[in-house]
Design a protein around this nucleic acid. Structure first.
Length: 657
DNA sequence: GCCGTTTTCGGCCCGACTGTTTTCAGTCG
């Protein structure tokens, strides 16, 4: 039976269970999360903004502050919901909506109204009161509703371009509370608003984070540097880059930070914090703390926002106060904890929670100190370094960049892997010069010979050409070409013959089973005809999973983050079939895929579907992507036992169909 | 507007930085 987790959870970790069929049907509809959810959370945010705009400055209606915050909280919840709110409503009605934390009677009925009629009367009324382009101003950094209200009361400003024009013409200066300085600031913010507000891929910004980390580490008076925020939580996309530094000279560190060459604009700069915009459009925060506050600051700055709020509430309920400087006793005002993050969690009555799990998706509830369930779970949690082999690796026989020997050599020497599967594309994928039946068999034969030579210690990789390539790339005339000898000793490394077989439109494969059965392991994936309806696409994958020759379904949803959503798949149904047929689902570690996503990983584990974490390497450097896949797996609460390529190769092969 | 091991009222996470209304509101993370 399938289990679905609604996150985050202060109410229930699971939706009420009905009969299996019902849940399957309900989950089937929930695959396509985003559209209505985004539309609805968007309107809730706009309602909040308009309420704040409407909150008369003279008239101190404090309740209104909480009212608009309630709308924001509800919007946050909907954004984090791993299922379609429309399906939830269709399946469970208004009670389904009430299951979501922070959504009560008033907001649920507004959501219902939106689903039924496509609009919300309450929002329309607020809008008619203030005929501005709300979209222009919600999320415009540095200019909130209060400031905007003062402006629109005096000037006919209705849109962002109106505001920009007014600021340029110096019309804002003179309105009470707005000086020349503030006017300039508003202009600057509008300018910056137009560059890069979107979230960046974890893998794209990874090198930059490491570079800044190194820069900060090398500063004098700096003892610890940690990249925190969603980076530390290994989220697939990063909104801004946060750094935490321990130093006894914050002033110096902050000045060095805001003067880095990567900085486009200093947004704010104080005694302990600085906030900058980088040249690539990303925002970056720095917090400098003394050693005795490192743990508290680490917790505070790692987030997530929801996890942090939940912790501070927990502290509050225990007559404690939690902030970035430490955990304090309200009565005595004494600091109870601060230097160590682990101790901080303990003092809150919790076990330490790994950053990847800090999303307020039920982790706080079950991490109670001494909880056996939690300790077991954490003992088994997948660790960086647990992956023993990579089951999706490409060679230059198709679209990879290096030979099988080279991919094997670097897997062993640079990434400490024990085995790889060579999964070149198959013939129908013409763009990658996919292999036909004979070529696959030839490759399998060659792989057998490599394995024999590894065993006998005669395996040899000529690495000289890489040296030459490097020289050419550097355009140097250096004739000193070092001869690098290949390592003849790869220990008990094993190369598996395999393929990334193309799943055709009807779910059949482009290579017959009698050929596939001669390979060690077989992965299958969709690469064409993305825009078929969900039932067709799902049946296509199901047929592949039911094929006795297929061991793994590679990148099951086909999404490319920030580029395409992936083909429509009924994930819960695919999971049911995967479980039934002992088919493995892949977590593709390439940072633009990370497919399966964290929520689906958690769903797979709840339903006892086995997974693997692969790099999808087309070059030896790509093995490094495994770190992203492992991070994603941890975000899905994956244990070592859930991920089959944590096993030695002999045991892995026994688990296949 | 939401919520409840202090449950139908009275709370709601917490502190830094900015600019300006020199004691605090607005905004942000």
């Amino acid at each position: 039976m399938l289990v679905l987790i609604v996150s985050p959870t202060s109410k229930n970790t699971q939706l009420p269970k009905q009969n299996d069929e019902k849940i399957n049907e309900y989950q089937r509809m929930s695959y396509n999360v985003k559209l209505a959810n985004v539309e609805i959370s968007d309107i809730l945010r706009k309602i909040s903004f308009l309420l704040e705009l409407d909150n008369d400055i003279d008239n101190n209606k404090t309740n209104l502050n909480f009212k608009n915050r309630a709308y924001i909280k509800a919007a946050d919840q909907i954004d984090n919901l791993p299922l379609s709110i429309t399906s939830l409503y269709e399946e469970r009605g208004i009670n389904g909506l009430l299951q979501i934390p922070s959504i009560g009677k008033a907001i649920s009925s507004k959501i219902e109204e939106y689903i039924k009629t496509g609009k919300i009367e309450y929002y329309e009324i607020l809008k008619s009161k203030y005929p501005i382009k709300v979209d222009d101003f919600v999320g415009l950094e540095g200019i909130g509703p209060k400031t905007l209200r003062v402006i629109i009361d005096k000037l006919p400003v209705r849109s962002l371009s109106d505001l920009e024009k007014a600021a340029r013409e110096g019309k804002l200066n003179g309105i009470s509370g707005i000086s020349k300085k503030k006017e300039e600031r508003i202009l600057k913010r509008i300018e910056l608003h137009n560059i890069g507000k979107k979230r960046h891929l974890l893998g794209d910004i990874y090198p930059l984070v490491k570079q800044i980390e190194k820069y900060l580490t090398n500063l004098e008076n700096v003892s610890i540097v940690t990249a925190v925020g969603s980076f530390r939580r290994m989220r697939e996309t990063i909104g801004d880059i946060d750094f935490l530094v321990v130093s006894d000279n914050p002033d110096k560190v902050i000045n060095s930070f805001v003067n880095m060459p990567e900085v486009k604009e200093i947004l704010s700069k104080g005694d302990t914090k600085a906030f900058i915009k980088l040249n690539n459009g990303l925002d970056s925060d720095l917090l400098v703390v003394p050693k005795e506050s490192y743990g508290a600051a680490l917790q505070y700055f790692t987030g997530s926002k929801e996890h942090g709020i939940a912790l501070r509430r927990l502290a509050q309920s225990n007559a404690l106060r939690l902030n970035e400087w430490g955990l304090f006793d309200n009565k005595s005002n004494q600091k109870i904890s601060g230097e160590s993050e682990e101790q901080l969690y303990n003092k809150l009555g919790l076990e330490w929670i790994p950053p990847e799990l800090r999303e307020n998706r039920g982790e706080i509830e079950i991490a109670k100190k001494g909880s056996k369930e939690w300790q077991e779970k954490m003992k088994g949690l997948l660790k960086y370094g647990d992956i023993k082999g990579d089951l999706q690796v490409h060679s230059n026989s198709t679209d990879g960049k290096m030979s099988i020997e080279e991919m094997a050599y670097f897997a062993r020497t640079n990434f400490d892997l024990d085995y790889i599967a060579i999964t070149d594309h198959t013939k129908s994928l013409r763009i990658a010069r996919g292999l036909d039946e004979q070529q696959l068999l030839d490759q399998a034969h060659k792989i057998q010979e490599f394995n024999d030579s590894i065993k006998s210690g005669t395996f040899f990789v000529d690495l000289n050409k890489h040296d030459e390539e490097k020289q050419v790339n550097r355009k140097t005339s250096n004739n000193e070409k070092k001869r690098i000898k290949g390592d003849r000793n790869l220990g008990d490394f094993r190369i598996l013959s395999s393929a990334e077989v193309n799943i055709l439109s009807d779910g059949s494969l482009d290579i017959p089973n009698n050929i596939l059965d001669k390979l060690d392991i077989v992965g299958a994936a969709i690469h064409t005809n993305f825009s078929q309806p969900i039932d067709v696409q799902t049946n296509r994958l199901i047929k592949a999973a039911q094929n006795p020759s297929v061991d793994i379904v590679f990148h099951p949803t086909g999404r490319i983050i920030n580029k395409r959503d992936g083909y429509p798949v009924d994930i819960p149904k695919l999971m049911t079939i995967a479980k039934e047929t002992n088919t493995i689902l892949e977590i593709d570690s390439h940072y633009n895929r990370l497919d399966l996503r964290d929520e689906y990983i958690r769903m797979a584990i709840q339903n006892d579907v086995k997974l693997v974490v692969d790099s999808d390497a087309h070059h030896p450097l790509h093995y490094a992507f495994l770190e992203f896949g492992i991070g994603q797996a941890r975000r899905g609460w994956a244990g070592r036992n859930d991920i089959l390529n944590t096993l030695p190769v002999s045991e892995l092969l026994k688990k296949l169909k």
